[in-house]
Design a protein around this nucleic acid. Structure first.
Length: 261
DNA sequence: CGTATCCTGACC
DNA sequence: GGTCAGGATACG
């Protein structure tokens, strides 16, 4: 489920349910999800008020009234389920946040790869992240700067969160298709025209997905996807069969004609 | 740079 | 039984 647009949607759900509420308890149901959470962290959370919910890249940050931070990452398959105290746990519930108005926010994750970390006030909470492609300041120049030292193929480079925050496997492929750039093009040798197209494609693809949640979701309508998961289907721009290859262990989908080197 | 690893479930 | 999965990281 989660790439940046889905995390943005999830963070909004969480914000609506949780901001200004106090935490009654955090219950951990799967050891891996909470491996970084100490028993004393759980004790300290009780009674804290949630004052803010923010997203940075694919990270969700809950700021609490003592300045500490609850840091959640969905990885491959996490999501929030909001219901009420007393409801049955959804399948694959890994952790449950109970709030003082009877709301329950559950971290549901079939693969149990999601992580929860508690950071004390003032402790740095995020790994190094590149610029947000949805920010107003994002541009070809900013992208060129982020790619400057990267000699590798552009597609795996885009998945490195230190280069650009929040790009995942789907949107890397979709943005490269939109920008008509080969996934094997050398990242720091893109022409100015290609850099401009890629910066626009990254921003526009993500903004469209944020504006229309679900249109990129696998299993539901994936009308908006042009290459991801479409091996063998005709390219919507030129009719050539979409191809799949593996880069850095991950599937890359692309049109061999539109995205020729 | 690529590969293995963390997890579980779906599908062939 | 093997492969694959929208992520990230530790390692060679």
């Amino acid at each position: 489920m989660p790439e940046l647009p889905e995390v943005e949607a999830a963070a909004r759900v969480l914000r609506d349910a949780a901001v200004d509420r106090r935490i009654v308890s955090l219950r951990c149901l799967h050891a891996a999800t909470c491996r970084a959470v100490a028993a004393e962290d759980i004790a300290r959370l009780a009674g804290r008020r949630i004052v803010d919910v923010a997203r940075r890249g694919k990270h969700q940050l809950l700021t609490l009234d003592d300045g500490s931070t609850l840091h959640v990452h969905f990885r491959m398959a996490g999501d929030w389920h909001v219901d009420r105290v007393g409801d049955d746990d959804a399948r694959h519930t890994r952790a449950v946040l109970t709030l003082d108005d009877g709301t329950r926010v559950s971290l549901v994750d079939p693969r149990a790869l999601s992580t929860i970390v508690v950071h004390a006030a003032g402790a740095s909470t995020l790994p190094a992240l590149g610029p947000e492609p949805t920010d107003d300041g994002f541009s070809a120049a900013v992208l060129a700067d982020a790619l400057r030292s990267r000699r590798g193929p552009i597609k795996p480079v885009l998945l490195d969160q230190r280069v650009v925050a929040g790009i995942g496997n789907i949107y890397a492929a979709e943005a490269l298709w939109r920008a008509r750039i080969s996934p094997t093009a050398v990242a720091n040798r893109l022409s100015p025209a290609r850099l401009a197209r890629l910066a626009d494609a990254l921003r526009d693809t993500l903004l469209e997905a944020i504006a229309a949640p679900g249109r990129y979701s696998a299993g539901e309508t994936r009308d908006a996807m042009h290459v991801y998961g479409r091996e063998g289907e005709p390219c919507s721009r030129c009719g050539t069969a979409i191809r799949r290859r593996v880069q850095a262990g991950r599937s890359t989908y692309y049109c061999p004609r539109c995205q020729a080197r």
